[in-house]
Design a protein around this nucleic acid. Structure first.
Lengths: 332, 332
DNA sequence: TATGCGTCGCGAAACGTTTCATGAAATTTC
DNA sequence: GAAATTTCATGAAACGTTTCGCGACGCATA
């Protein structure tokens, strides 16, 4: 009785308690075929000892850990937060654990996390990263979000092109005559780049006059303020519609417009991108092109766990949708 | 040469390559004293083979995994998101991994995660949970946020009482004559309860007339709408100040007030609680009592990793501060 | 030269699983 | 009823570490 109180019970303990061999316990635990009477005895012993498998021993043996590392810049941008949440759900559904790594957009940090994660033999990595030359363990399945890194590494993204187009069309529908596209480089690597071309295409199709203001990484935000000032005469802005590359940017721009005495959406309508919401269930921060974070997460998990790596598509684009968030005039 | 390409190199491989014993490699890897010439040879071999320790073998042997499970309801509430981020930073600083578990306020989910986490032999758990009778492995260090579960389990929280008091004083300072406190039960278990008594105390101290509206878990939000309507006559609200138990609630209440034609902060000033910000760096969602999420995270990690469990304090309260977020009139 | 002591590398054992060759028992076959 | 075949529990080996008793070696002492 109560011999090894201090240590958690092992399979050996269960085997002894049930009077069976080690391998038999293993089979019961893993649901493999075992004689009925044996199964019952083992299950009783497991119950009695409150046995839990040691998944680190399993991991060592099987070279499989049922955990996936998720690399995100942070969790306070609502879009990333939403992604983290959806990934957590999708992984949990498949009984996988999620190792969350916040990289703060820092390439060194990203590489460090990748290295750390190698030691821990996660079964795969899902990364929304900004380091263009990340070195990833070749035999660890890697799936990116929003960043195409080559044919061997699947990339899951929204249909950014369609989203840009949708924004242009929406602004046209809502009566805009002259619009502008605002973007910061750093928030806009790779796939999200297509938002611009989609938007341009949409404007052309609807014969909507447009201008672009594109800042590079590291450029001060003032670049936008200057741009808007240049197009501001006699209390009026040259534009009646703005498409901002992210909701975050839209949010900042709104503050600037406010300080210029302009009213949104009466004077100028704004559409952002991402689908950021205040408290998850609150209303959208601005009128926006919503990314399907649930589908993105689902797809990432699907791909990262896929057995046959050869079958993985290099790029998956998922459909976006428009949502009203108070910064556009809805149709009369 | 290139014999075992498919498998990651092990200590044995390094030992063979360096021409030393297994134990010597182990010592080098762990920084234990080893003869200089041996160290050099081993380090060269490690470099050459690109050896990485297998932390699951380490975990199996040492019964230590350098990972901590974090239980949060979700990541899209900015307060939780911030907490997740700060915890990630604090853990990373100590080279610990973070297993994030989103529980969606669901007691069953919470217990399931706790169980799952037991199997994975995490070194500890930090939980912001809502299940009053969670069963936690007695030998896994457990630290809660905001919920006092008994003397053996440390609870880290903001100084909620002081926060409530601070809100009352601020409203008084800003000229309010009659205020109200709004809260929903579910968002207000345990420690955060003290926000009410702190607020009450603050009102009494400043001879500020106040009322309370408290909804229970599961009550429809309409309860607040009705309450506000009852106190709304001739386009004017009986209150000139509101203290909402969370920023989330404040956010929702603002929408209601808006729909009643009331202006914030001109007609009624609002103070929330948490310190929620839009994009992490954006401005506060509302004027608010800010919780020190960085200090909370730091303290949680400190306590959960503490060797001597007997020295852990049962309750730690950390100082809050007031921040302007546009929903209060600042002093003239 | 012989003894004693301290250093330090060596390698076997152990951690808790899974797997697989082994052989005992039960079943089938003629 | 004996031999062939199937079934299935058994327990040793292996996964990649850490730990620790052992012994080889170097040095000081007499």
């Amino acid at each position: 009785m109560m011999r090894k109180m201090s240590t958690a019970p092992t399979m050996k303990d269960v085997a002894r308690e049930a009077g069976v061999a080690l391998g038999t316990v293993s089979k019961v635990v893993n649901g493999l075929p075992v004689g009925e009477n044996y199964r019952i005895r083992v299950e009783a012993a497991i119950e009695k000892l409150d046995y839990q498998v040691n998944s680190y021993a399993q991991g060592l043996k099987a070279n499989r850990t049922y955990s996936i590392a998720v690399l995100l810049p942070n969790t306070f941008n609502p879009f990333f937060a939403d992604l983290a949440h959806q990934l957590n759900l999708a992984l949990q559904k498949r009984r996988y654990k999620m190792l969350l790594c916040c990289t703060a957009f820092n390439p060194t940090e990203e590489q460090e996390y990748i290295n750390m994660v190698r030691q821990n033999k996660v079964d795969g990595i899902i990364g929304l990263t900004y380091n263009p030359d990340l070195i990833v363990e070749p035999d660890t399945p890697y799936v990116t979000i929003d960043r195409y890194m080559g044919p061997g590494i699947p990339c899951v993204a929204s249909d950014n092109y369609a989203g840009g187009q949708m924004a242009a069309e929406k602004l046209a529908d809502l009566g805009c005559k002259k619009v502008a596209f605002l973007r910061i480089g750093s928030s806009l690597t790779n796939e999200p780049n297509k938002r611009r071309s989609g938007f341009e295409n949409g404007c052309l199709a609807r014969q909507l006059s447009y201008e672009m203001k594109i800042l590079d990484d590291g450029d001060p935000f003032d670049g936008f303020v200057d741009f808007l000032r240049e197009h501001f005469h006699n209390g009026k802005l040259d534009f009646d519609g703005l498409f901002c590359v992210t909701d975050n940017l839209a949010f900042q721009i709104m503050k600037v417009l406010e300080s210029m005495g302009l009213k949104v959406p009466e004077d100028v309508q704004i559409i952002g991108f991402d689908g950021a919401r205040m408290f998850g269930d609150g209303r959208y921060v601005c009128s926006t092109i919503v990314q399907p974070t649930d589908a993105i997460a689902e797809m990432c998990v699907e791909l990262v766990l896929m057995d046959n790596a050869a079958l993985r598509p290099p790029l998956v684009c998922l459909p976006v949708s428009y949502a009203y968030g108070g910064t556009t005039m809805e149709r009369p």
